[in-house]
Design a protein around this nucleic acid. Structure first.
Lengths: 319, 319
DNA sequence: CTGTTAGCGCATTCAC
DNA sequence: GTGAATGCGCTAACAG
């Protein structure tokens, strides 16, 4: 491995000059520049980027923690993050957490050890107290409504959007409304549940735990929802489904079971994933790619900011 | 930032001893060990991993290049890779290429610059000639049948599995068989096409270009296939679909169009993605998670190996 | 068992 | 415009 010192020798200049040429600094005479360039070609030289990192104290690497990499929600988020990272000359380190706290901690540790410059947590698992310990290690960016000014965040007002969707179904005449969600913990899920309880109270409807279905993440989870619904004396007439993926699964399964949509069961999905358009599912659009872009920008900037993203109800034919 | 030298001072030992304690080397007296441990706690010390990387000449980072991160095929592959990387104490750098050559080159450059120890290319874009230039930079692992002994690979015999599936449909009485694929370029796609042409020839069936549908990657691409088929005078009676995702899309769309499956259209999917089970789609199972595990292992080991993975036809109700 | 020392490869002040 | 010198934080011979 030839290094910068060898280059200097070959080109007959100093190490500093080589470094200047390498980094496109001004104030280097054309001839020396050429000499260095020639030396680089001759010797098939390549920077050892780790030395750069050590010297600079940063890596141009940003960590992204997602529970799953095979879900459209995170896929779309990643897409935005990945595209924007390209523009900013950052690379991504992927942490697939599977919702295991250990893995999220590993990501935080890498931040502390300076292997990544900042960390984007797309769906936080560990306690806020834990995250706090890492605040000084580098920027942490979250995808949830945060309090205080210690971390940047890009988020949806899930309380409001859930309330709006519930009221929309109410106006359409539904009184037995349930919802499907990925996991019950998590800031966003809790906000949604609060909205749900509050909606029921306001509308003087009673809360039925069996109307809440969790573990709804993928297409195939839809069949489980249908199974559970079949066992209910009074099944809901409408469902809010926090991922179109699952809504599509429910729709597909309903057909087999002779449940007509929307006549027997109304569905409002979330995210406006591609599948929703194809299957004509009414959905609350969340601009995930845009969110991803903003998350990456926040991870790069030192300023701590919070940005709320608006959602839009897209009416199709499942309600 | 306190460093290893500060620790040495605080603990009253040498830098080396600190390093030994840090890395769990033997032959350090308990008392010194304790002294160092105490110093570490006191000073809230954390390794700067970049210094380690520079010193060791490697990063324990493995690059993974995938075209999309939101497709079950790559999602499952990633899952295997990610889980096995954990066991081997490697982290992953994700390169989402979107099938753009530039992005794959970036990954190769990182290999050359030693920011990643090795690179797994899940679906190669750039020419083999290009890859060859990077062979000396570090292990490169591919997901395709490779020739020679310059890179490791884990692959499916796509020629054979495609032939088998075609003959299966033939035996079921089908004579007008088409297929759907993601992209036409790529070693695997070409092998499949060869198998297709060879099958037709062997069975004395004529080749109809309009029976080959490309750009079939996601669920929603299924509707486009149906659209195109509707415009055909003699549409195929059976389709080989290289992703269950797309097969499911075709099945869903068929229902709306009054096309009965398998009566009017038989479908054989690939991968045995979760959606295939739910929608009862006959499919050629590819053990993607297992493949991912093997890919990671190959990326870690210095030995160059090639491993062929067997597939299994799972008969369900779409044929 | 322990410490001294020489790198690892590059960026960056500072002086010329 | 240019270069010498120093430091980034850690590892790993080597000597004792």
């Amino acid at each position: 491995m030839t290094n910068i010192r060898d280059l200097a020798k070959i080109a007959g200049v100093s190490v500093t000059t080589v470094s200047r040429v390498l980094n496109n600094h001004p104030y280097v005479s054309q001839e020396k520049k050429d000499a260095v360039s020639r030396a680089i070609k001759e010797s098939n030289y390549h920077k050892n980027i780790n030395a750069v990192h050590l010297s600079k104290g940063r890596t141009n690497l940003i960590g992204v923690a997602v529970p799953f990499s095979d879900h459209p929600y995170f896929g779309l988020l990643l897409k935005g993050i990945a595209n924007e990272s390209l523009k900013n000359n950052y690379k991504l380190v992927l942490f697939q957490t599977n919702y295991e706290e250990t893995r999220e901690l590993e990501a935080l540790e890498m931040l502390k050890q300076k292997q990544i410059d900042s960390l984007i947590i797309c769906s936080r698992i560990c306690d806020w107290k834990v995250v706090e310990d890492y605040l000084t290690s580098g920027p942490i960016v979250l995808c949830e409504k945060t309090i205080g000014d210690q971390v940047s965040s890009t988020y949806i007002d899930h309380y409001k959007s859930f309330s709006d969707a519930l009221n929309y179904l109410f106006q359409k005449g539904h009184r037995k409304i349930g919802y499907c969600i990925g996991r019950r913990s998590g800031t966003n899920s809790k906000d949604r549940h609060k909205a749900y309880r509050h909606f029921l109270k306001e509308r003087q409807l009673c809360y039925r735990p069996e109307y809440v279905f969790d573990q709804c993440l993928h297409f195939e989870d839809g069949s489980e929802v249908i199974n559970k619904m079949k066992q209910l004396q009074e099944p809901p007439t409408a469902l809010l489904v926090t991922s179109d993926q699952v809504a599509a699964g429910i729709a597909a399964c309903s057909k087999n079971e002779g449940i007509a949509i929307p006549e027997n069961l109304a569905l409002v999905g979330f995210n406006n994933e591609p599948i929703a358009q194809m299957m004509n599912i009414t959905t609350v659009e969340i601009p995930l790619v845009e969110m991803g872009i903003n998350l990456l920008r926040q991870a790069v900037n030192k300023a701590i900011t919070r940005k709320e993203i608006d959602v839009t109800l897209i009416e199709r034919e499942s309600v």
